[in-house]
């Protein structure tokens, strides 16, 4: 037990997570074979693995987009597998900020509206939404492009809008799934710089999922996934 244990609050607590597909069928397939790790408040964790290692499946479970087959997962102390769809939606809305490889911005809406979208679902007043969204766009340096639609933005700019959207409800964790995967190395670095800034200046807990060892090396803790198992966990507080 180190001292940080007493200070840092665990955000993710996973124990023996299994995930299988086609359950009960002849082609039943287990992707995750008992994953267990904790992530603490303010940590910048990368989960690195080659394609097929199960990192996307793991990311879906962490992001409450999918349910594990067995094992327990507590997010901020809540056993999210026990919760109903509405509550899980609410947790995704308020406690998790998603950043995807392919941005997943709504093509018809401008940057500002994309950033405001989660606030619509947390039923905030329209006036507050706008103010807050502008604030977030400023944070990622995109306030001058607020009225632009995604197809008028470059890849790096789109990803910065997506980060602003992820940040808008002040989530417990930011879950970034190959955030630089669709970007060239220069803009990729720019995006990574924003994550570092959020981590250092705002103390955000960030979980970065990537196949790139190089990118993973930028983070303080690296969890390596291989064939559905954690093969190493380096640099963590524990």
């Amino acid at each position: 037990m180190s001292e940080t244990d007493n200070i840092k609050r665990p955000i993710i607590q996973m124990h023996d997570i299994h995930k299988s597909y086609y359950i009960g069928k002849p082609n039943e397939l287990e992707i995750l074979h008992g994953i267990g790790f904790n992530a603490y408040e303010g940590e910048f964790v990368s989960i690195v693995g080659e394609s097929g290692s199960g990192k996307s499946t793991l990311m879906n479970i962490i992001g409450i987009l999918d349910r594990q087959t067995s094992g327990t997962y507590f997010l901020e102390g809540k056993d999210v597998n026990q919760l109903n769809d509405d509550v899980r939606s609410e947790i995704r809305n308020k406690r998790i900020g998603f950043v995807f490889q392919n941005f997943n911005l709504l093509p018809r809406a401008n940057a500002l509206k994309n950033v405001m979208m989660p606030l619509v679902y947390s039923e905030q007043k329209p006036k507050n939404r706008r103010e807050k969204a502008m604030e977030m766009l400023k944070l990622v340096g995109m306030d001058d492009r607020a009225m632009h639609k995604p197809n008028e933005l470059s890849g790096g700019q789109k990803q910065r809008v997506a980060i602003a959207r992820a940040m808008i409800n002040d989530p417990a964790i930011i879950l970034a799934d190959e955030p630089t995967g669709a970007l060239d190395s220069k803009t990729g670095h720019m995006v990574m710089d924003i994550f570092h800034k959020l981590h250092e200046e705002q103390g955000k807990t960030i979980v970065l999922i990537t196949h790139s060892q190089e990118l993973a090396n930028e983070t303080q803790r690296i969890i390596t996934l291989f064939d559905g198992n954690i093969t190493s966990d380096k640099g963590g507080a524990l």
Partner: peptide, 16 residues
């Protein structure tokens, strides 16, 4: 479908 997925990921409930 993708848009619906994004909206749900961002916290839109089914009834919404």
């Amino acid at each position: 479908t993708k848009e619906i997925g994004v909206r749900m990921a961002m916290g839109a409930k089914k009834r919404v």
